[in-house]
Design a protein around this nucleic acid. Structure first.
Lengths: 210, 210
DNA sequence: TGAGATATAGGCCAAAAGTCCTATTGGCCA
DNA sequence: TGGCCAATAGGACTTTTGGCCTATATCTCA
Protein backbone atom coordinates (compact mmCIF):
# COMPACT_ATOMS: atom_id res chain seq x y z
CA UNK A 1 0.00 0.00 0.00
CA UNK A 2 1.52 3.28 -1.04
CA UNK A 3 1.71 6.10 1.45
CA UNK A 4 -0.11 9.30 0.66
CA UNK A 5 1.42 12.43 2.20
CA UNK A 6 0.46 16.08 2.01
CA UNK A 7 3.24 18.66 2.25
CA UNK A 8 2.21 22.26 2.79
CA UNK A 9 4.85 24.94 2.53
CA UNK A 10 4.93 28.21 0.66
CA UNK A 11 8.59 27.85 -0.27
CA UNK A 12 8.96 25.65 -3.35
CA UNK A 13 12.53 25.04 -2.31
CA UNK A 14 11.48 23.46 0.94
CA UNK A 15 8.75 21.51 -0.82
CA UNK A 16 11.40 20.13 -3.11
CA UNK A 17 13.64 19.24 -0.20
CA UNK A 18 10.91 17.45 1.71
CA UNK A 19 9.87 15.48 -1.34
CA UNK A 20 13.42 14.27 -1.80
CA UNK A 21 13.61 13.30 1.86
CA UNK A 22 10.35 11.41 1.70
CA UNK A 23 11.45 9.48 -1.34
CA UNK A 24 14.49 8.48 0.65
CA UNK A 25 12.21 6.87 3.20
CA UNK A 26 9.93 5.11 0.77
CA UNK A 27 10.49 5.48 -2.97
CA UNK A 28 6.95 4.51 -3.83
CA UNK A 29 4.74 7.15 -2.28
CA UNK A 30 2.30 9.80 -3.35
CA UNK A 31 3.21 13.36 -2.38
CA UNK A 32 0.53 16.03 -2.54
CA UNK A 33 1.50 19.66 -2.26
CA UNK A 34 -0.10 22.83 -1.01
CA UNK A 35 1.32 26.33 -0.92
CA UNK A 36 -0.93 27.81 1.74
CA UNK A 37 -3.18 26.67 4.52
CA UNK A 38 -6.54 26.98 2.80
CA UNK A 39 -5.24 24.91 -0.09
CA UNK A 40 -4.05 22.32 2.42
CA UNK A 41 -7.47 22.25 4.04
CA UNK A 42 -9.16 21.68 0.70
CA UNK A 43 -6.92 18.73 -0.08
CA UNK A 44 -7.39 17.25 3.36
CA UNK A 45 -11.14 17.49 2.99
CA UNK A 46 -11.00 15.66 -0.32
CA UNK A 47 -8.30 13.08 0.33
CA UNK A 48 -9.72 10.79 2.94
CA UNK A 49 -6.89 8.33 2.76
CA UNK A 50 -4.04 10.58 3.84
CA UNK A 51 -1.28 9.03 5.95
CA UNK A 52 0.47 12.20 7.04
CA UNK A 53 0.35 15.97 6.79
CA UNK A 54 3.50 18.05 6.97
CA UNK A 55 2.88 21.71 7.70
CA UNK A 56 5.11 24.72 7.67
CA UNK A 57 4.34 26.79 10.74
CA UNK A 58 4.90 30.11 8.98
CA UNK A 59 2.63 29.79 5.97
CA UNK A 60 0.18 32.13 4.28
CA UNK A 61 -3.28 31.93 5.84
CA UNK A 62 -1.91 29.69 8.53
CA UNK A 63 -2.82 31.08 11.91
CA UNK A 64 -0.12 29.23 13.78
CA UNK A 65 -1.40 26.96 16.50
CA UNK A 66 -4.98 27.83 15.80
CA UNK A 67 -4.79 26.12 12.44
CA UNK A 68 -3.40 22.96 14.01
CA UNK A 69 -6.29 22.79 16.44
CA UNK A 70 -8.69 23.24 13.55
CA UNK A 71 -7.13 20.39 11.58
CA UNK A 72 -6.92 18.12 14.58
CA UNK A 73 -10.59 18.77 15.18
CA UNK A 74 -11.75 17.84 11.70
CA UNK A 75 -9.43 14.83 11.40
CA UNK A 76 -8.66 13.51 14.89
CA UNK A 77 -6.53 10.61 13.68
CA UNK A 78 -4.48 12.25 10.96
CA UNK A 79 -0.81 12.52 11.91
CA UNK A 80 0.37 16.12 11.71
CA UNK A 81 4.01 17.10 11.64
CA UNK A 82 5.11 20.70 11.97
CA UNK A 83 8.20 21.84 10.14
CA UNK A 84 9.43 25.20 11.24
CA UNK A 85 12.40 27.54 11.19
CA UNK A 86 11.71 28.36 14.82
CA UNK A 87 13.25 26.40 17.64
CA UNK A 88 11.57 28.31 20.41
CA UNK A 89 10.48 26.12 23.28
CA UNK A 90 7.15 27.91 23.34
CA UNK A 91 6.50 27.15 19.68
CA UNK A 92 7.33 23.51 20.17
CA UNK A 93 5.18 23.23 23.26
CA UNK A 94 2.26 25.04 21.71
CA UNK A 95 2.38 22.94 18.56
CA UNK A 96 2.30 19.69 20.50
CA UNK A 97 -0.40 20.99 22.81
CA UNK A 98 -2.44 21.98 19.79
CA UNK A 99 -2.37 18.40 18.58
CA UNK A 100 0.69 18.01 16.40
CA UNK A 101 2.40 14.62 16.37
CA UNK A 102 5.81 15.98 15.69
CA UNK A 103 7.86 19.15 15.44
CA UNK A 104 10.90 19.23 13.20
CA UNK A 105 13.15 22.29 13.11
CA UNK A 106 14.31 23.09 9.60
CA UNK A 107 17.85 23.08 10.84
CA UNK A 108 17.69 19.36 11.57
CA UNK A 109 19.90 17.01 9.61
CA UNK A 110 18.50 14.90 6.81
CA UNK A 111 18.65 11.63 8.72
CA UNK A 112 17.07 13.16 11.77
CA UNK A 113 14.18 14.38 9.66
CA UNK A 114 13.73 11.07 7.95
CA UNK A 115 13.77 9.21 11.23
CA UNK A 116 11.36 11.68 12.76
CA UNK A 117 8.96 11.22 9.87
CA UNK A 118 9.27 7.43 10.09
CA UNK A 119 8.55 7.64 13.78
CA UNK A 120 5.42 9.70 13.30
CA UNK A 121 4.24 7.52 10.41
CA UNK A 122 4.44 4.53 12.73
CA UNK A 123 2.30 6.31 15.28
CA UNK A 124 4.93 7.99 17.43
CA UNK A 125 5.48 11.52 18.63
CA UNK A 126 8.68 13.30 17.65
CA UNK A 127 10.26 16.15 19.56
CA UNK A 128 13.64 17.68 18.74
CA UNK A 129 16.53 16.75 20.97
CA UNK A 130 16.99 20.31 22.21
CA UNK A 131 13.49 20.12 23.61
CA UNK A 132 14.57 18.46 26.83
CA UNK A 133 17.25 21.05 27.46
CA UNK A 134 14.97 23.88 26.47
CA UNK A 135 12.03 22.84 28.59
CA UNK A 136 14.31 22.36 31.54
CA UNK A 137 15.61 25.88 31.43
CA UNK A 138 12.26 27.20 30.40
CA UNK A 139 9.86 27.11 33.27
CA UNK A 140 6.67 25.46 33.95
CA UNK A 141 3.58 27.47 34.63
CA UNK A 142 2.26 30.95 34.40
CA UNK A 143 5.41 32.94 34.55
CA UNK A 144 3.75 36.20 35.58
CA UNK A 145 1.13 37.28 38.09
CA UNK A 146 -1.97 39.08 36.93
CA UNK A 147 -0.66 42.46 37.94
CA UNK A 148 2.62 41.78 36.26
CA UNK A 149 0.85 40.83 33.06
CA UNK A 150 -1.08 44.09 33.14
CA UNK A 151 2.12 45.99 33.61
CA UNK A 152 3.82 44.05 30.84
CA UNK A 153 1.11 45.10 28.43
CA UNK A 154 1.81 48.74 29.14
CA UNK A 155 5.52 48.06 28.92
CA UNK A 156 5.06 46.54 25.49
CA UNK A 157 3.60 49.72 24.09
CA UNK A 158 6.43 51.78 25.46
CA UNK A 159 4.94 53.40 28.53
CA UNK A 160 7.34 54.81 31.12
CA UNK A 161 7.23 53.81 34.77
CA UNK A 162 5.50 57.06 35.66
CA UNK A 163 2.81 56.55 33.05
CA UNK A 164 2.22 53.00 34.19
CA UNK A 165 1.99 54.20 37.78
CA UNK A 166 -0.63 56.75 36.80
CA UNK A 167 -2.61 54.21 34.79
CA UNK A 168 -2.91 51.81 37.69
CA UNK A 169 -3.00 54.52 40.32
CA UNK A 170 -0.05 53.15 42.23
CA UNK A 171 3.38 54.56 43.06
CA UNK A 172 6.14 54.41 40.51
CA UNK A 173 8.13 52.72 43.25
CA UNK A 174 5.69 49.86 43.04
CA UNK A 175 5.96 49.74 39.29
CA UNK A 176 9.70 49.45 39.67
CA UNK A 177 9.30 46.68 42.20
CA UNK A 178 7.09 44.76 39.80
CA UNK A 179 9.46 45.31 36.94
CA UNK A 180 12.46 44.11 38.94
CA UNK A 181 10.47 40.99 39.71
CA UNK A 182 9.44 40.53 36.08
CA UNK A 183 13.03 40.89 34.92
CA UNK A 184 14.14 38.20 37.31
CA UNK A 185 11.42 35.80 36.25
CA UNK A 186 12.06 36.30 32.56
CA UNK A 187 15.79 36.33 33.18
CA UNK A 188 16.35 39.56 31.32
CA UNK A 189 18.07 42.80 32.16
CA UNK A 190 15.88 45.61 30.87
CA UNK A 191 12.37 46.49 29.78
CA UNK A 192 12.88 46.16 26.06
CA UNK A 193 14.33 42.71 26.49
CA UNK A 194 11.44 41.83 28.76
CA UNK A 195 8.97 42.74 26.02
CA UNK A 196 10.92 40.71 23.51
CA UNK A 197 11.10 37.71 25.79
CA UNK A 198 7.44 37.93 26.78
CA UNK A 199 6.42 37.92 23.15
CA UNK A 200 8.63 34.95 22.41
CA UNK A 201 7.07 33.03 25.23
CA UNK A 202 3.55 33.98 24.23
CA UNK A 203 2.98 35.88 27.45
CA UNK A 204 1.76 38.88 25.53
CA UNK A 205 -1.25 39.01 23.31
CA UNK A 206 -0.92 40.41 19.82
CA UNK A 207 1.20 43.45 19.35
CA UNK A 208 3.74 41.18 17.77
CA UNK A 209 1.80 39.74 14.88
CA UNK A 210 0.30 43.01 13.75
CA UNK B 1 33.40 22.08 -18.35
CA UNK B 2 31.35 21.26 -15.28
CA UNK B 3 30.01 24.07 -13.20
CA UNK B 4 31.09 24.32 -9.58
CA UNK B 5 28.56 25.92 -7.26
CA UNK B 6 28.61 26.61 -3.53
CA UNK B 7 25.31 26.56 -1.68
CA UNK B 8 25.29 27.93 1.85
CA UNK B 9 22.18 27.47 3.95
CA UNK B 10 21.72 26.21 7.47
CA UNK B 11 18.52 24.35 6.61
CA UNK B 12 19.32 20.95 5.11
CA UNK B 13 15.87 20.96 3.58
CA UNK B 14 16.59 24.05 1.56
CA UNK B 15 20.02 22.72 0.64
CA UNK B 16 18.31 19.64 -0.70
CA UNK B 17 15.82 21.73 -2.66
CA UNK B 18 18.45 23.93 -4.23
CA UNK B 19 20.54 20.95 -5.23
CA UNK B 20 17.56 19.41 -7.00
CA UNK B 21 16.87 22.71 -8.76
CA UNK B 22 20.45 23.04 -9.89
CA UNK B 23 20.51 19.56 -11.28
CA UNK B 24 17.45 20.52 -13.28
CA UNK B 25 19.50 23.25 -14.92
CA UNK B 26 22.56 21.19 -15.61
CA UNK B 27 22.71 17.54 -14.54
CA UNK B 28 26.47 17.45 -14.57
CA UNK B 29 27.62 19.92 -11.97
CA UNK B 30 29.51 19.97 -8.73
CA UNK B 31 27.58 21.27 -5.72
CA UNK B 32 29.49 22.25 -2.60
CA UNK B 33 27.64 22.88 0.61
CA UNK B 34 28.14 25.01 3.70
CA UNK B 35 25.93 25.33 6.73
CA UNK B 36 27.13 28.67 8.01
CA UNK B 37 28.96 31.70 6.75
CA UNK B 38 32.40 30.95 8.08
CA UNK B 39 32.28 27.53 6.49
CA UNK B 40 31.27 29.18 3.23
CA UNK B 41 34.19 31.57 3.48
CA UNK B 42 36.61 28.71 4.01
CA UNK B 43 35.37 26.92 0.92
CA UNK B 44 35.48 30.08 -1.16
CA UNK B 45 39.05 30.70 -0.09
CA UNK B 46 40.04 27.19 -1.13
CA UNK B 47 37.98 26.69 -4.28
CA UNK B 48 39.36 29.14 -6.75
CA UNK B 49 37.31 27.86 -9.64
CA UNK B 50 33.83 28.56 -8.29
CA UNK B 51 31.18 29.61 -10.78
CA UNK B 52 28.52 30.74 -8.33
CA UNK B 53 27.76 31.17 -4.66
CA UNK B 54 24.23 30.89 -3.35
CA UNK B 55 23.79 32.37 0.11
CA UNK B 56 20.95 32.28 2.56
CA UNK B 57 20.58 35.75 4.02
CA UNK B 58 19.60 34.44 7.44
CA UNK B 59 22.42 32.10 8.25
CA UNK B 60 24.54 31.52 11.34
CA UNK B 61 27.51 33.86 11.50
CA UNK B 62 26.22 35.71 8.48
CA UNK B 63 26.11 39.39 9.26
CA UNK B 64 23.59 40.25 6.58
CA UNK B 65 24.76 42.77 4.05
CA UNK B 66 28.09 43.14 5.72
CA UNK B 67 29.01 39.59 4.79
CA UNK B 68 28.11 40.19 1.17
CA UNK B 69 30.38 43.20 1.02
CA UNK B 70 33.14 41.13 2.57
CA UNK B 71 32.77 38.38 -0.02
CA UNK B 72 32.52 40.80 -2.89
CA UNK B 73 35.69 42.40 -1.66
CA UNK B 74 37.75 39.20 -1.54
CA UNK B 75 36.35 37.82 -4.81
CA UNK B 76 35.24 40.73 -7.00
CA UNK B 77 34.15 38.57 -9.93
CA UNK B 78 32.39 35.73 -8.18
CA UNK B 79 28.65 35.77 -8.87
CA UNK B 80 26.70 35.88 -5.60
CA UNK B 81 23.02 35.06 -5.38
CA UNK B 82 21.05 35.69 -2.23
CA UNK B 83 18.23 33.35 -1.36
CA UNK B 84 16.01 34.64 1.38
CA UNK B 85 12.66 34.22 3.04
CA UNK B 86 12.37 37.98 3.21
CA UNK B 87 10.77 39.96 0.44
CA UNK B 88 11.36 43.32 2.03
CA UNK B 89 12.23 45.95 -0.53
CA UNK B 90 14.97 47.19 1.77
CA UNK B 91 16.56 43.74 1.99
CA UNK B 92 16.53 43.39 -1.77
CA UNK B 93 17.97 46.81 -2.34
CA UNK B 94 20.62 46.41 0.32
CA UNK B 95 21.70 43.03 -1.00
CA UNK B 96 22.16 44.37 -4.51
CA UNK B 97 23.89 47.48 -3.26
CA UNK B 98 26.22 45.30 -1.23
CA UNK B 99 27.30 43.52 -4.39
CA UNK B 100 24.96 40.58 -4.89
CA UNK B 101 24.18 39.56 -8.47
CA UNK B 102 20.75 38.29 -7.68
CA UNK B 103 18.10 38.06 -5.01
CA UNK B 104 15.66 35.17 -5.05
CA UNK B 105 12.82 35.02 -2.54
CA UNK B 106 12.26 31.51 -1.23
CA UNK B 107 8.64 31.82 -2.22
CA UNK B 108 9.55 31.95 -5.91
CA UNK B 109 8.43 29.13 -8.17
CA UNK B 110 10.86 26.47 -9.33
CA UNK B 111 11.11 27.69 -12.89
CA UNK B 112 11.57 31.26 -11.77
CA UNK B 113 14.45 30.17 -9.57
CA UNK B 114 16.05 28.11 -12.28
CA UNK B 115 15.80 30.93 -14.77
CA UNK B 116 17.14 33.40 -12.26
CA UNK B 117 20.13 31.17 -11.60
CA UNK B 118 20.71 30.68 -15.33
CA UNK B 119 20.58 34.42 -15.78
CA UNK B 120 23.15 35.08 -13.09
CA UNK B 121 25.40 32.26 -14.30
CA UNK B 122 25.47 33.92 -17.68
CA UNK B 123 26.54 37.19 -16.12
CA UNK B 124 23.19 38.86 -15.51
CA UNK B 125 21.55 40.45 -12.51
CA UNK B 126 18.28 39.02 -11.25
CA UNK B 127 15.69 40.88 -9.25
CA UNK B 128 12.31 39.45 -8.29
CA UNK B 129 9.30 40.62 -10.25
CA UNK B 130 7.64 42.09 -7.18
CA UNK B 131 10.58 44.40 -6.87
CA UNK B 132 9.06 47.06 -9.06
CA UNK B 133 5.75 46.91 -7.27
CA UNK B 134 7.38 46.79 -3.87
CA UNK B 135 9.63 49.72 -4.40
CA UNK B 136 6.66 51.65 -5.66
CA UNK B 137 4.37 50.90 -2.73
CA UNK B 138 7.16 50.82 -0.22
CA UNK B 139 7.66 54.35 0.75
CA UNK B 140 9.67 57.07 -0.61
CA UNK B 141 12.20 57.94 2.02
CA UNK B 142 12.22 54.44 3.54
CA UNK B 143 11.62 56.02 6.93
CA UNK B 144 14.94 54.77 8.29
CA UNK B 145 18.45 54.70 6.91
CA UNK B 146 20.33 51.44 6.61
CA UNK B 147 22.30 52.09 9.76
CA UNK B 148 19.19 53.02 11.63
CA UNK B 149 17.50 49.82 10.55
CA UNK B 150 20.45 47.81 11.78
CA UNK B 151 20.31 49.61 15.10
CA UNK B 152 16.56 49.10 15.35
CA UNK B 153 17.07 45.38 15.01
CA UNK B 154 19.36 45.34 18.01
CA UNK B 155 16.98 47.60 19.88
CA UNK B 156 14.15 45.18 19.25
CA UNK B 157 15.94 42.39 21.02
CA UNK B 158 16.64 44.57 24.01
CA UNK B 159 20.28 45.48 23.55
CA UNK B 160 21.58 48.45 25.50
CA UNK B 161 23.29 51.41 23.86
CA UNK B 162 26.67 50.12 24.96
CA UNK B 163 26.04 46.68 23.51
CA UNK B 164 24.88 48.17 20.23
CA UNK B 165 27.94 50.38 20.15
CA UNK B 166 30.17 47.36 20.64
CA UNK B 167 28.35 45.33 17.99
CA UNK B 168 28.85 47.98 15.32
CA UNK B 169 32.18 49.14 16.66
CA UNK B 170 31.08 52.74 17.07
CA UNK B 171 30.76 55.06 20.06
CA UNK B 172 27.72 54.92 22.30
CA UNK B 173 27.43 58.62 21.60
CA UNK B 174 26.78 57.75 18.01
CA UNK B 175 24.24 55.15 18.99
CA UNK B 176 22.46 57.77 21.04
CA UNK B 177 22.57 60.19 18.13
CA UNK B 178 21.00 57.58 15.86
CA UNK B 179 18.37 56.75 18.43
CA UNK B 180 17.44 60.38 18.93
CA UNK B 181 17.01 60.61 15.19
CA UNK B 182 14.97 57.41 15.04
CA UNK B 183 12.69 58.62 17.83
CA UNK B 184 12.01 61.81 15.94
CA UNK B 185 11.27 60.02 12.70
CA UNK B 186 8.96 57.53 14.33
CA UNK B 187 7.52 60.24 16.55
CA UNK B 188 8.06 58.34 19.76
CA UNK B 189 9.72 59.11 23.03
CA UNK B 190 11.68 56.06 24.08
CA UNK B 191 13.24 52.85 22.79
CA UNK B 192 10.47 50.48 23.76
CA UNK B 193 7.93 52.66 21.98
CA UNK B 194 10.23 52.81 18.99
CA UNK B 195 10.30 49.03 18.77
CA UNK B 196 6.53 48.89 19.09
CA UNK B 197 6.05 51.51 16.41
CA UNK B 198 8.61 49.99 14.05
CA UNK B 199 6.86 46.66 14.27
CA UNK B 200 3.51 48.27 13.60
CA UNK B 201 4.91 49.94 10.51
CA UNK B 202 6.60 46.79 9.27
CA UNK B 203 10.02 48.35 9.57
CA UNK B 204 11.17 45.34 11.53
CA UNK B 205 11.25 41.80 10.35
CA UNK B 206 10.09 39.04 12.60
CA UNK B 207 8.19 40.41 15.51
CA UNK B 208 6.47 37.08 15.68
CA UNK B 209 8.82 34.58 14.16
CA UNK B 210 12.26 35.38 15.40
C1' DT C 1 -1.15 29.48 63.33
C1' DG C 2 2.61 30.22 60.54
C1' DA C 3 4.95 30.20 56.08
C1' DG C 4 4.79 32.02 51.56
C1' DA C 5 3.16 34.68 47.87
C1' DT C 6 1.35 39.15 46.33
C1' DA C 7 0.86 44.06 46.23
C1' DT C 8 2.11 48.09 48.07
C1' DA C 9 5.79 51.74 48.94
C1' DG C 10 9.85 54.29 50.79
C1' DG C 11 15.11 55.42 50.54
C1' DC C 12 19.47 55.31 48.35
C1' DC C 13 22.50 54.90 44.72
C1' DA C 14 24.58 53.80 40.22
C1' DA C 15 23.95 53.25 35.63
C1' DA C 16 21.56 53.98 31.47
C1' DA C 17 18.95 56.68 28.52
C1' DG C 18 17.79 60.84 26.22
C1' DT C 19 18.34 65.97 24.71
C1' DC C 20 20.76 69.73 22.91
C1' DC C 21 24.62 71.55 21.34
C1' DT C 22 28.68 71.51 18.07
C1' DA C 23 31.93 69.51 14.65
C1' DT C 24 34.25 66.57 11.18
C1' DT C 25 34.28 63.38 7.36
C1' DG C 26 32.79 61.28 3.00
C1' DG C 27 29.38 60.63 -0.73
C1' DC C 28 26.29 62.14 -3.89
C1' DC C 29 23.91 65.40 -6.81
C1' DA C 30 22.73 69.28 -9.46
C1' DT D 1 31.92 73.44 -6.51
C1' DG D 2 28.63 74.21 -3.05
C1' DG D 3 24.90 72.14 -0.67
C1' DC D 4 22.82 68.24 1.53
C1' DC D 5 22.80 64.16 4.12
C1' DA D 6 24.49 60.11 6.51
C1' DA D 7 27.60 58.70 9.91
C1' DT D 8 30.64 59.66 13.27
C1' DA D 9 31.62 61.65 18.03
C1' DG D 10 32.32 64.78 21.98
C1' DG D 11 30.46 67.71 26.03
C1' DA D 12 27.05 68.91 29.34
C1' DC D 13 22.98 68.15 31.32
C1' DT D 14 18.42 66.03 33.11
C1' DT D 15 15.49 62.26 33.54
C1' DT D 16 14.65 57.48 33.76
C1' DT D 17 15.72 53.11 34.89
C1' DG D 18 17.05 49.42 37.67
C1' DG D 19 19.23 47.16 41.93
C1' DC D 20 19.06 46.46 46.73
C1' DC D 21 17.27 46.95 51.14
C1' DT D 22 13.48 47.37 54.28
C1' DA D 23 8.62 47.38 55.70
C1' DT D 24 3.86 47.10 55.72
C1' DA D 25 -1.09 44.64 54.76
C1' DT D 26 -3.67 40.87 52.69
C1' DC D 27 -4.58 36.40 51.39
C1' DT D 28 -4.03 31.53 50.89
C1' DC D 29 -2.61 27.04 51.94
C1' DA D 30 -0.90 23.52 54.76
Amino acid sequence: MTLKILVADDHPLVLEGIRTLLQGIEPDLCVLEAKDFSEAKKIIAKELKLDLVILDLAMPEMDGMHSIVELRHTRPCLPIVIVSASEEASDIRNAINSGANGYIPKSSGNEVMQNALRLVLSGGLYLPAQWAALSRTNNNGEMLTLRQQEIMEQLAIGKTNKEIARIFAISDKTVKAHLSDIFKRLEVGNRTQAVHQAKKQGLLKSAGNN
